[in-house]
């Protein structure tokens, strides 16, 4: 394995690790549930994609064979991340989880819960 390829693999792995860390950091730090929903769906998915691409390059170079499981896992995560985020948001809305006080547009809450169009004055 040439140093350049090793460097590329390391860069992908590090990028992935940092994004995974950021995702969890946001989960811990952000103030309310709806804002917390943002980081795990985006940052963690991208972080894992970085890890998977890094390991795919490694196995392609080191063992001279194409391991496609990584691609399947990445695709699967990319498809399922928004679905689970949507279901969590829906569950939180129906459980009346309170949003941060300064959240704008809280008058949409009831309408969204009942799946009605937004109130007319909006």
């Amino acid at each position: 394995m040439t140093p350049v390829i090793e460097l590329i693999i390391c860069a992908f792995l590090l990028l992935g690790g940092i994004f995974v860390l950021l995702g969890s950091f946001g989960l811990l730090r952000l103030p309310d549930f709806y804002t917390r929903l943002h980081t795990p769906t985006k940052a963690t998915t991208l972080g894992l994609a970085g890890l998977l691409i890094g390991s795919m390059i490694y196995f392609f170079v080191a063992e001279q064979r194409l391991v496609v499981h990584e691609l399947l896992i990445t695709l699967f995560l990319l498809i399922t991340a928004p679905v689970s985020a949507h279901m969590l948001a829906k569950a939180a809305l129906h459980h009346k989880v309170r949003a941060l006080k300064r959240t704008q547009g809280q008058n949409l809450f009831t309408a969204a819960r009942k799946r009605q169009p937004p109130p007319a004055d909006n």
Binding site: T41, T45, A81, V83, A85, H86, A111, P117, P118
Partner: peptide
Amino acid sequence: ASTISLTPGTVSAEVSEDRQWLYIHVLHL
């Protein structure tokens, strides 16, 4: 809705029953 969930600081939360409105949550508006 999935695209919105995956891109800039927005998560789609609910769609109205007549499928005319999509409710989204924005991290920084």
